[in-house]
Design a protein around this nucleic acid. Structure first.
Lengths: 135, 135
DNA sequence: TCAATTCCTATAAAGTTTATAGGAATTATT
DNA sequence: AATAATTCCTATAAACTTTATAGGAATTGA
């Protein structure tokens, strides 16, 4: 399952992509209202997306958020990794968040294989799905 | 990510499958020691697997556990659903644990599709992977 | 009767997710 | 210069989930 946070992030990105043509940046408060996301929680999400270069933000009274890339350049793999972390279902098969299984001899492990297959199929799908394709 | 519990369950099933030819059932204490799983925690896991008809148990001094099906009839889809619940990454695309998204109009939802694809690919892999194939 | 097991329920401990609080820094406008 | 509205930041609370343990009841073969 993806987290609620990740779903909020996705909704926010889609909202920003839909309103990409506006001349001024978009307030987090507007997104929060329209998408029914808790305002303060959304702020921390948007900040994470900005830290990851997905969004551009500006401050002050006329501040707000904008996409920092074309909507077809923002992939679900990016989003999920930023917000939820690993996409793989086992730490030891994660490409971006690899970790050894504490009590598991990896060379003789018989279960890795199937989880690598799932990871690859999942990455293929999320990696070829952009925010633009979800409008 | 699958839970630690689910990984424990998988290890236990593989252990039981490996020792399927033994005349007597296998103690949870033996599995716990061999696979380094907390004993009491393992007991609750094995009970869940028994409740789901995956295992057969017998009580008393010579009691223990055995597979209740051929190892090639126990699929990863079964295991994961019993222990962790839904395989899908969104409640609204789960086949076995469907739930509506609270604030989401499902008919106009644009994100379901990609998660259905991931679900289908994942089910195809886990659904064609048996405990036997992991020995 | 004993010893060892499975079985059951409750609960503790630890960790994660979700959300809020309170304000600092910034910036256009008045 | 003051104001008002924003983003930004850190800390923490609240809720929930996962992981693990405790304490024994029921069962069964010897």
């Amino acid at each position: 399952m993806i987290s609620k946070k990740c779903k909020y992030a996705l909704k926010a990105l889609i909202y920003l992509a839909k309103n990409q043509e506006r001349p001024t940046p978009i307030f987090s408060s507007e997104i929060a209202e329209q998408e029914r996301i808790p305002k303060k929680f959304l702020e921390t999400i948007l900040r994470e997306l900005r830290n990851a270069q997905i969004l551009h933000s500006s401050r002050g009274k006329t501040g707000g958020y904008k996409l920092n890339k074309a909507a077809d350049q923002i992939l679900l793999t990016d989003l999920i990794r930023i917000i939820d972390g690993p996409i793989a279902m086992l730490p030891c098969v994660s490409l971006n968040y690899y970790a050894t299984c504490p009590e598991c001899d990896e060379s003789s492990c018989t279960i890795k294989g199937v989880f690598e297959k799932v990871r690859d199929e999942t990455l293929a799908i999320f990696g070829s799905t952009s925010i633009k394709s979800l409008l």
